[in-house]
Design a protein around this nucleic acid. Structure first.
Lengths: 191, 191
DNA sequence: GAAGATTGAAGGGTCAATCTTG
DNA sequence: CAAGATTGACCCTTCAATCTTC
């Protein structure tokens, strides 16, 4: 399980960045450390956090929080721009209480409407208002442009290869991978 | 800027997973969409969130929260197992207020000690106690094993290539990349 | 009784103001 | 006055309890 290269953490060309130094430190404490696994774990976290911070910063200048982006875009791609609170909960990986709060705030902005589902009166149907749709489209554009700026300086071939590799990696994870802690964020305690 | 393949979002072999469908939907709304950039952005977020959830779940069974892991390991690799509150703030990317709170909780667990820096009495020197060091080592082991289990089912060659590609990507980001919102989490408002 | 949504208490974070020391 | 840490107000999330509807 702990195959490790005998050299420093870097496995090939662009050797020894800050992460390699970190990994080398840990390997110095435990020579059995798998430097590749530790490296990719750290780098995935850091890269994603950079991206998320960049998005939060840019979208903040458009007057939107990340939670609102998540909700509005989920509704934007729902059929008829409407979805149930439960569906939104499962898509966004937050608890039902959080969804209720978010919907309240979105509603007070006038971006969504809440109606009782006539089919099943336990469910709440959330629908984008006209204003909400405009907002969602503005946000989608801003978010997409921000992502393109974020990766703009990176070699195109590398981005494409990483996209493909990430697809493969995710496929190796889900099925036989580490038993995911079930579905959703513990979708409400049962009674 | 918006180079896009005319086919579906998937660029090569393992075509059309859930993310490709999402990206295809957005491209249907806007044919100019750069499917590779959108794809890698989504996949990076999802993969990292899976990893973080897995870690949170596993480490939770050891009775530790992620914020504690972050703090204890930062101290574990500091010279003399001690660091200043400000340094910890910059390493962990949370605000100074959060650090103060965290240190209070760690202190009440008996895992760290707070002393005034004799050199500069404005600074607080945080040091791992003996119990804290034991905890940190337990955590490091558990975290490393969890990461190895997470990536255990993934082809080794792919993981190595992704590690190298991520190193290159991060290097392309930091310097000329998108102007990072400065350093740290706004390291304390200037008086 | 179970499913879906809401509620309120509690945890942890940010932000701005404050205190202390250089 | 600047830098470092602390404090308190506020925001959002989780968690468990509750209410309604199937």
């Amino acid at each position: 399980v702990t195959t490790h290269s005998p050299g420093p953490a870097a496995t090939s060309g662009g050797r020894d960045d800050e992460v390699d130094e970190l990994v080398d430190f840990w390997r110095h404490e435990n020579p059995d450390l798998d430097v590749v696994t530790k490296g990719i774990a750290v780098r995935l976290r850091r890269t994603t956090h950079l991206l998320e911070r960049f998005l939060r910063h840019e979208l903040g200048e458009h007057g939107v929080e990340m939670w609102a982006v998540e909700m509005l875009l989920a509704l934007r791609r729902a059929p008829g721009y409407s979805s149930s609170a439960g569906r939104l909960m499962r898509e966004s990986q937050v608890t039902s209480g959080a969804i209720t709060n978010r919907l309240g705030r979105l509603e007070s902005h006038g971006w969504v409407r809440r109606d009782v589902d006539p089919t099943d009166r336990r469910q709440v149907l959330v629908t984008l208002t006209d204003d909400g749709l405009v907002q969602a489209d503005r946000i989608l554009t801003a978010k997409t442009l921000t992502e393109q700026r974020f990766f703009g300086g990176v070699d195109r071939t590398l981005v494409e290869r990483m996209n493909d590799d990430l697809r493969t990696l995710m496929a190796s994870l889900d099925p036989a991978g580490p038993e995911a802690p079930s579905e959703g964020p513990t979708p409400d305690a049962p009674g």
